[in-house]
Amino acid sequence: MSLDDVLDIISALLVLVGAFLTLAAGVGLVRFPDALARLHAATKPQVLGLIAIVIAVAIEARSWQVLLTLIPVLLFQVLLAPIAAQMVGRAAYRTDNYRADLSLVDDLAADVERATSDAERANVDTDRTDRDDRA
């Protein structure tokens, strides 16, 4: 078994890890109870899966240059996946797309309530100012 074979198997195993995490993310999407929980499945496994695949591509190409070219892909995902999760989660929370009966602690409820009533008292467009104010 030559070094090439070993490297081939390692990169195939890394792809396997990525594929497994993709499946887990999909199953999480189906099985988790509400949108807020599904966001967990959409962020973490996918980022690690992408890291695994990127390393696999670089190993398969046997090239550092390929790895460097793929670093922006990782950067985009690592930085943007949490941002997307935050935007979607925020929208889901504010449009009541979650199951309150499943929450143990909810520190946000009181704060959103207060900010909303403040805005209504000021008799302005609730949605806009509330969001900008609390951002």
């Binding site: 594929a19 993310a25 999909g26 949108a35 499945a41 959409a42 996918q46 995902q77 979607v88």
Partner: peptide
């Protein structure tokens, strides 16, 4: 909801990248 579909399509697109 719309947001569930949004999350799922995001996952689908990341799957495509992988």
């Amino acid at each position: 909801s719309l947001l569930d579909r949004l999350i799922a399509s995001d996952v689908l697109l990341t799957t495509l990248i992988l």
